[in-house]
Write a protein that binds this DNA or RNA. Structure first.
Lengths: 217, 217
DNA sequence: CGTTTAATTGAGGAAAGTCAAGTGAAGTGG
DNA sequence: CCACTTCACTTGACTTTCCTCAATTAAACG
């Protein structure tokens, strides 16, 4: 069994102070810069956090899967915006209640630290993807990352599940939608992956995928 | 007074279990994938963490200033390599001792959580820089980031101190050294910044710098 | 079944990367 | 104190590649 952030007991405690959110696809959760009143815990579906450029366009900062926590704030304000990528169920935990729980329940701290380390590594992985120049390399790394996370969640992994749209992926890896589309095509044509439909891709040639992901640029 | 990660009391406790490292410029500290035995705390100088590509070249993941902690590991192995960018003094804290301290000293947990949140935001900022396409925008964001950190450390900030070389910056923001050089030149020529020497830059036109940093691409 | 959204594909232009040569500064030893 | 070596950076010419824009096609949704 995989490592759970919270024990059953802890979950029960949190359930008392949490409210349940049910969100439709595309629905906003909070906006960058607005007062941070709560942290969230994804129960089902996919959430993304993103930062908007002053003018237009946006950079996706993270995808949050079931079990993930989001709602990081700085000086009482959210550092990024969040929205539901698919239909989402999430727990909303008021900050004051979380603080109270943290101060009385010492065991919780260690779990939180572990979770934060995971998120930190995740952010670094993301930075690593963004640093690459070639769309193909970015996509290869992204697919490997999703596969890795999927395994970590203990789900089936004979094929990779992609809950988000191609433009969502494009905004996460930092390329244009057109370039991402071409990258997908190239992986398909070369027999590296095989797409059953828009949301399911199977890795056919794992070695080739790794080789592409390890490219310097 | 700025927020300190550790109280004087906590510092004293840590001092007992820490060994002091003195490193020359360029000296390696640990290597990606090697067994993680300790975490480190920068006392003076500048450290960088980086990941190497299978073939050659490397991506700088973070710059660590005095007060920063580094040595993040996953499954007992360091997730990146670390080296001294300048001459460095650092405290080396054996993992077993840190664990013991954490389990007995509850106050420490909260400080660690705060610190991890800071690092997480930092990693996200880095990702944001890497996502930009224009070298000028990347450099502008990098300079703002350094200024911000410098203020956070409570140091003078009428000019920005750049301990690292231009190629170090280039590897952090993800552009070629040539492109970075051109970006510096352009900020200078347009009167946005003014470089006293290789390691000191003054922001002349803060508004223009912000405008450049806020560009979408 | 029609409408809206998502994705593909093509052509053209802008921009950064690479390569390579040259310049400047910093440190070294005589 | 000054040549000499080395390292850090600059600058130019050329090439590659991705982005932009736009026109189609395909898929999802009511």
């Amino acid at each position: 069994m995989r490592h759970q952030l919270l024990s059953e007991n802890e979950r029960a405690q949190l359930a008392k102070i949490a409210s349940i959110l049910r969100l439709k696809k595309g629905e906003p959760i909070y906006h960058e810069g607005s007062p941070a009143e709560a942290v969230f815990n994804v129960a089902a579906g996919l959430v993304s956090t993103y930062m908007t450029f002053g003018n237009s366009g946006q950079q996706t900062m993270a995808f949050l899967f079931p079990g993930d926590i989001f709602g990081l704030s700085e000086e009482g304000r959210y550092t990024s915006s969040a929205k539901a990528v698919t239909a989402v169920t999430a727990y909303k935990l008021p900050l004051h209640a979380v603080r109270r729980l943290l101060s009385t329940n010492a065991d919780l701290d260690l779990d939180i630290i572990v979770k934060l380390c995971q998120e930190l590594r995740q952010a670094q992985r993301h930075a690593f993807i963004l640093a690459k120049k070639s769309p193909v390399t970015k996509l290869a790394m992204f697919l490997e990352m999703l596969e890795y996370l999927q395994i970590g969640r203990g789900e089936d992994h004979w094929e990779i599940y992609l809950p988000m749209s191609k433009s969502d992926i494009a905004e996460y890896v930092g390329v244009s939608l057109a370039a991402l589309s071409r990258a997908f095509r190239m992986l398909n044509d070369r027999g590296v992956i095989s797409c059953r439909d828009r949301h399911h891709a199977k890795v056919v040639d794992k070695v080739a995928l790794e080789r592409l992901a390890d490219q310097p640029a």
